[in-house]
Amino acid sequence: MKLQKTILLFASIASALIFSGCASTGGGSYVNSQGPDTLVAGNQITITDFYIASDEMVNSMVSSGALDRAPKQPAIMAISRVINDTREQFDTDQLVKKIRVALNQTGKVMTTTTVGFGGNAEDKLAESAAAKEAYLSGKTYSPSSKVDFTLSGKIIQPPKVKVGSDRQNSYIFQLTLTQVGSGLAVWEDEKTITKQYKKSSIGW
């Protein structure tokens, strides 16, 4: 009986230590979000993936010379649909905003916030102020007529590859820059990020 109590006591202490260990959050620490110390998760998209994809897309777009063929500099770009077609939930602005900021820095492109996909302006206040100004000056309000390019795209996640306990997960970033006047895709690119990881030995 005494032995059983002792075993029970040890089991209780052990389980308490295990579960308190799992629940521990620690003090936390700051890391550079663009640095090598960010956590790598093979089974999900991370902020590093968006940094890599946006950097490669901007480099590709600038190197292509497509932006130089705009009728005016800087060219005006509107953001069209960028679809998240993966099995994960995230905001595609994690990609698009970085690209917008980077293109703006080049001085070759500026993004309009009063023209958006489906007539939904990103900045409703700016849109209504511009419409009011056009009305008062007797002009027709047509912000889309100023747009030189639209940016559209999709993020795809192919089925995961499983070999034994090894897993492979990919994200395909596809972007297209369309010249509004001609309707032609003047620049397109596709970047794939692939990560491998081991399946957790703990089954839950």
Binding site: S33, P36, Y51, V58, K98, I99, V101, A102, Q105
Partner: peptide, 25 residues
């Protein structure tokens, strides 16, 4: 640069590999 920072990469045994980058401004 809004898209800069450290990039992970890899290189095969004895391989020659090019990495490129475009300045932000």
């Amino acid at each position: 640069s809004p898209t800069g920072g450290w990039r992970p990469s890899g290189i095969q045994a004895r391989e020659l590999k090019a990495i490129t980058a475009v300045a932000p401004t």
